[in-house]
């Protein structure tokens, strides 16, 4: 799985819009996601984040604008694990490989490899999803996406329903995978802190119709970020008038605004 040279593939969205009937949920979305970067789309519920991700994943037909996906392989993780209840954890992880026509022995070996990195032992792999704890199920779901060695990983509120400890662990595993094999990651979340912790760029969406209101860049490596940094940046973002308006918060306290630049954030 060695990637020779620089991967120049990218995901390019230009003027993407979508409407359910007469209700416009997305309009004029532009986005450029190069390989090896993690971009987060944050916004309140109902701002069209999930619709946007479904458009990128090809789960919805594109109505407006263009999406150019230069990545060869993409994989998805959803908010719910969405495992097949009649298949063992191992077979669930190997599902995407089976879809690619990888023979049984090879796909099981790859799935087992991936699972081991995630702390899933043979006992857990032999079990059916409903015998596993919620945390185990999430690990299986992430392993199912990552075993495909995707160039583009789409995360749809993938960590929202997990407790803090489990979130931290899955963040670590995601970033470790990202370090091992650079891939583009597009994640959507309503958790500003999660976006600030993981992403190189945070795009804040505003609702009705869903659009990108503003964006921020953080150029340091996500794996190096300390908790204190993450808190300071999140607080900095929450001082921003556009961000507050997007989430429907009251106008900011006009005291000395916290300079986001001082904690490493740049407005795009």
């Amino acid at each position: 799985m060695a990637h020779a040279g620089v991967n120049t593939a990218a995901l390019e969205l230009a003027g993407v819009g979508h409407a359910y009937g007469a209700r416009t949920v997305l309009s004029g979305i532009d986005l450029h996601l190069p390989a090896g970067r993690i971009h987060a789309l944050v916004g309140p519920s109902g701002c069209g984040k999930t619709t946007l991700l479904h458009l990128v994943a090809g789960l919805l037909p594109l109505q407006d604008g263009t999406i150019r996906n230069g990545f060869a392989r993409s994989a998805c993780m959803f908010q719910q694990p969405r495992l097949l209840p009649w298949k063992s954890a191992l077979d669930n992880i190997a599902l995407g490989l089976k879809a690619r026509g990888v023979p049984r022995a090879a796909r099981h070996a790859q799935a087992r490899d991936q699972a081991r990195r995630f702390g899933l032992d043979d006992t857990a792999l032999a079990q059916y999803p409903q015998q596993l704890s919620g945390g185990m199920q999430s690990r299986v779901a992430l392993a199912r996406a990552l075993v495909l060695a995707p160039d583009l990983l789409l995360l749809d509120e993938a960590f929202s329903a997990l407790d803090v400890g489990l979130k931290a662990e899955l963040y670590r595993q995601l970033l470790a995978e990202q370090a091992r094999r650079p891939m583009g990651v597009l994640m959507i979340t309503h958790d500003l802190m999660e976006a600030v912790r993981l992403a190189h760029a945070v795009w804040v969406m505003a609702p009705a119709p869903g659009r990108i209101a503003t964006g921020f860049r953080f150029d340091d490596a996500p794996a190096q970020r300390t908790d204190a940094q993450v808190y300071a940046r999140t607080a900095g973002l929450l001082e921003d008038a556009t961000v507050r308006a997007s989430f429907g918060l009251d106008a900011p306290a006009p005291a000395a605004p916290l300079a986001l630049a001082a904690v490493g954030g740049l407005r795009c």
Binding site: G58, L59, A75, F78, R82, L95, K98, A99, R144
Partner: peptide
């Protein structure tokens, strides 16, 4: 419907969709 969407996202071919889903 969520499983169906998952099958679509993982590009399960028709035969596999029939037998696994």
């Amino acid at each position: 419907g969520q499983l169906r969407e998952m099958a679509q996202a993982f590009a399960l071919p028709p035969l596999q969709r029939l037998f696994d889903l």
